[in-house]
């Protein structure tokens, strides 16, 4: 059993080594250290709910299965983000297949609400959260991935390109289109009188 104080001071590499040796406590500490990071990526991509929780769990299970392959060429944070974004994109593909199969063609599914129209009525904090969440869900999956990594997680353009395995120019063009759309969807939150308060 790892002492909590000592474990907190252990580096990622030290915890990974212990986890490789079959120490589940060390792996638990890694999960606790990075779960918010993974949550921000996956919930940003999928929205909150059981689907996101499942993709988050799958992200760490994948890390565990490939723990011997992680050589530290990138940071563990980046490595996990790469797994998380792939899990989220996979879940979205599954969701889209399901939606196409079971929902009628003239409906856009659960994300069909007009965030801007909703926001005109109410801009309380909880609703603002809803507004941002729904605005993110309005973006095409690959644009959303760029927004989540570049704006939400604070990765640089180069890091975002590396994680998504696309060119930096592609990151910027997707970001341009995504931010244009987000600015329209989040207009009620972005007025100077709103942002200054």
């Amino acid at each position: 059993m790892l002492d909590a104080m000592a474990a907190g001071a252990l580096s990622d590499q030290a915890l990974l080594q212990r986890a490789r040796d079959g120490n589940h406590d060390a792996f638990r500490l890694l999960v606790e250290r990075y779960e918010d990071q993974v949550a921000a990526t996956i919930i940003g991509m999928l929205g909150p709910g059981p689907e996101a929780d499942d993709a988050g769990q799958e992200t760490f299970v994948r890390l565990y299965e490939r723990i011997d392959q992680f050589r530290g060429d990138s940071t563990l944070r980046t490595y996990l983000t790469r797994i998380a974004i792939n899990q989220a994109l996979q879940a979205l593909r599954k969701r889209n297949r399901w939606t196409r199969r079971f929902l009628s063609r003239d409906r856009d599914g659960p994300a069909a609400a007009d965030p801007a129209a909703d926001a005109r009525d109410d801009v309380e904090t909880a609703e603002e959260k809803q507004l941002v969440h729904r605005a993110l869900q309005e973006l095409p999956d690959h644009y959303r991935a760029v927004v989540v990594l570049r704006l939400l997680q604070g990765y640089s353009t180069r890091e975002t390109a590396a994680i998504l395995d696309i060119a930096e120019g592609t990151v910027m063009s997707r970001l341009y289109r995504a931010t244009n759309k987000l600015q329209a969807l989040l207009a009620p939150l972005l007025r100077p009188e709103h942002t200054s308060t």
Binding site: D53, V61, L186, L189
Partner: peptide, 30 residues
């Protein structure tokens, strides 16, 4: 300013936590 505000709104309002007991659920799946 609008771009900065948009980025701040996304960052500020995005959810960044799974439900309680997440690490336990992960360990059960190992």
């Amino acid at each position: 300013r609008a771009l900065t505000a948009m980025q701040a709104a996304v960052t500020e309002h995005a959810e960044a936590a799974f439900d309680e007991g997440f690490s336990g659920r992960v360990l059960q799946r190992l």
